[in-house]
């Protein structure tokens, strides 16, 4: 009986777990928010105006006090759509622990509604015009790329700004670290 065999197995599993963690996060590129601009103050972020699927005006201030995951996306952006099922799961998992997801897009309302239905999106998908990408840029998205995800604390302050696909497992860990839950 080779007694060392189980340990080799454990070692390989541990290595695989580590590699999986790395792979899960490899597409996302954290970026630093651009410092300074007045429009990116918490008050400006929370008061920026968007509309919901029914055309009603909305602002992020309605979620004041919660950790916000603000995701800039578009229906034509394949990587954006690939990460959103993970956000749906995380919204369910974290909704009772003070976390709220919001999607922001400059897009065709009909396409957004169809996409929301098809994927069963369980968080608000709001729309805007050029101000959507303008806000994204002010929050550090220098290149104007999608997806762009920003984590805000309960007062609307930027905790993190990240471009690229945000994997479910990495974001889950991040939310746990931020909320301490």
């Amino acid at each position: 009986m080779k007694r060392w065999l189980p340990f080799v197995g454990i070692g390989m599993l541990a290595a695989l777990a580590g590699i999986s963690l790395w792979l899960a996060g490899r597409h996302a590129t954290p970026i630093a928010p651009q410092p300074g601009p007045v429009d990116a103050t918490p008050a400006a972020i929370q008061s920026a105006q968007f509309v919901d699927g029914d055309g009603k005006p909305r602002t992020l201030a309605m979620f004041s006090g919660k950790v916000l995951v603000v995701n800039f996306w578009a229906t034509w952006c394949t990587p954006c759509r690939e990460e959103m099922p993970g956000f749906v799961k995380l919204q369910s998992r974290w909704q009772d622990r003070g976390v709220q997801f919001v999607g922001l897009a400059q897009d065709d309302p009909a396409k957004v509604a169809a996409f929301s239905r098809e994927l069963g999106i369980n968080y608000p998908l709001w729309l805007g015009e050029a101000e959507v990408m303008a806000l994204s840029r002010r929050l550090g998205n220098r290149l104007g790329v999608l997806p762009h995800t920003v984590l805000l604390d309960g007062q609307g302050r930027v905790i993190e700004s990240r471009i690229g696909v945000y994997s479910e497992s990495v974001l889950d860990s991040r939310l746990a670290a931020i909320t301490g839950k």
Binding site: W4, G11, A14, A15, G18
Partner: peptide, 19 residues
């Protein structure tokens, strides 16, 4: 040795910097 190698592999992979 095996466990140390495994832990090192795990830590190295998890702490890998962004691309």
């Amino acid at each position: 040795s095996i466990l140390a190698t495994a832990c090192l592999a795990c830590a190295t992979a998890a702490a890998a910097p962004p691309p």
